[in-house]
Each structure stands twice: as C-alpha cells, then as structure tokens.
Design a protein around this nucleic acid. Sequence first.
DNA 1: GTCTGGTTCCTTAAGAAGTA
DNA 2: TACTTCTTAAGGAACCAGAC
Length: 316
Amino acid sequence: MTWYSHSPLNWCAKEEYVRQSSYEITSAQALNSIIDNVNNLIAILKDPTDTTSLRADLSKLEHEKVSKYVVEASQALMKIASDYNVPFHTSIITTLLKPEEEPKISTPQTNHLVSSFNVKEEISVFPALKEHKQFVEVTPPVDNECIAIGRAFNTLEEAAQAFQDYALKCGFNICKGNSKKDVYQEYACSARGKVRMRKIQDQSKRRNRKSIKKMCKCHIILRLKANVWVITMRKLQHTHDLLTIDEIKKTAKNRYIPEDIKERAVKMYNDGETPAKIQYQLESELGDLCTWSMKDLYNMLYRNKDPSIQESSDSS
DNA sequence: GTCTGGTTCCTTAAGAAGTA
DNA sequence: TACTTCTTAAGGAACCAGAC
C-alpha cells in the first residue's frame, strides 16, 4: 500500500494506518522504502533502453523535468536519512549534501519520526515494495469478431451492446467516449482517462478513494455511413488487469437495485423494518442476483426516505 | 479523423456522529 | 460494539470545443 498524500496534515491518519497495519513498519523502514523507490524511478528514467510506459509516454522536455524533480526528491530524502543516522543503500545519486551544512528540522512530527530512526542495524526494505511491477499491455484472448473493423450496426445501441458483450467476456466495463451527433461515436473501456485531482483547502478532509482510471486506450470508433454505424477503428489493448465476471458484477456500475426491489425495500423500511433485515431478506431471496451491498441499500433508503419520518424524528 | 482537456451533473462511498 | 444516519468529497459519465 502506498501513501499518496504529501501533506503533513494527514500525519495523524497516516500514523494511525501504520499503527494498525499488519506490516508494523518503523518510520526508518518507511523512509528507506521511499528512497529505494525514488532511486528505482531514477533508474528507469536514466536507462535509455527502458521501454516501460513511464518513459514511452514522456516527451523529452517532460522527461527532463521529471528527472530533475525526482533527483531533487531523492537528494532531500537522503539528506534527512543522513541527518538522522538512518542507514540506507542502493544509492544512485552520489552528490549527498554535507550532514552538518544545515540545521535539522525540529517539529513534533519530525521529533517523533526521529525517535524511531535511532537504529544502527542494516534495515532492508520490505520485499513487496522492492519488486517492480512491469507495465504490460493486456490483450484479452477472446474472440473479437463481433466488433471487427467494418462490422455494421443499424443503431448505436446495437453497437454498444456488442461491445458490452465483448467487454463482459474480457473483464472490463465500457463507457461512452467522444462523439459528434450523427457522425461518429466512440465507446471505450471505463478505465480510460485519468483521475482529476481536485483542489481542496483542508488536506485533512481529503478522502482515501481509489480510482478505476488507468489511462486505458481500449476503444472502438463507429461512423455513420449510408445510414448504418460502422466500426472504423478499434484498439483492444488494456493498460490494466482485467476482472473476473464476479468482480465486474461488484463494480459500482453494475450494482444497481431494480426499481421493483427499490420500492419494496423502501416500503419495508417505512413500515419500520431495519436495513440489515431488509438486506438479509433480499439476499436470501435473490442469491447472486443481489449484487448491491449494504452500503448501497443504506444510500438508496436515505435518498428515498419518507419526509414525514424525517420530520417526526427531528421533532422528537 | 482523432485526441485532449474542460465542464456539468449525478452518483458513490468515506468517514464522522448518533443510537441501541 | 455493531448498526444506522447523515454530510459531503470526489469519482464517473457524458458532452463539447478546439487543437493537432
């Protein structure tokens, strides 16, 4: 697991996670891990023969910028490690700052950190983070004739259904992509694009949410020719692991509660039944067809709550 | 013809707080 | 302690404009 937040405001949450984590790593181990991973990044960026996506996607200018930032980050980390006598290894950057050149940082947070740095034995980075996960393009070994280039469909809905069927066999969800009315329409893997990190004033309020976006390039493009929609282009490679059918069923997109079940659940709830009992009853009756979670049911019931119940509970 | 980035709207789910 | 309610950050989908 990796911590993405760089804000000191998240210190308490991070500390709590580390305390609860089964790894139970020390701060020194964590720092060593960061140094090691940054050095690995530098190695990738410096190696002209490396063909991983990181290098391939970068222009020369971007590559230079990223290299500069990563090298500076590595130097800063090793400076801190040196200041606090944390033994480190795998050094690619040889230009270490002199240990006594600058005053050490002293805040409650750093002091706490330092207390766990006073170790003299060699510390090895936990293996899980040391291994590189090579970037690979995944092309599903599934018959794709149903979405072959040149294949025509009477309507976009039919085309979407064909792509949806193919996606289900492969293990990914689809979404609509770019379009121009009555000209062309793209359907893509829902992992297309990237996450837009929104600006937030109070970093402590930032939530720990994952994203399905993986910059995936898998998509098909249809064009309207002689009143039929024809597949004119397709890319079937994915930048991420594919899912099993069970995993697909559990994705947010497929966890919908049918209207009739909704109505029934809301009625039971308004009659005084608890959400837990409603969910239990639905799971017993529907088995695998019950794809939604307890949380989904809570949200649905909350959205459809009878206003009179709300008022009576407010007044009491 | 294709791709990228911006915007809007809606939904999901994290997490705090209340309750039994 | 488990369950439930509630708020709200932010993810996802769709659409569009404009660049290449």
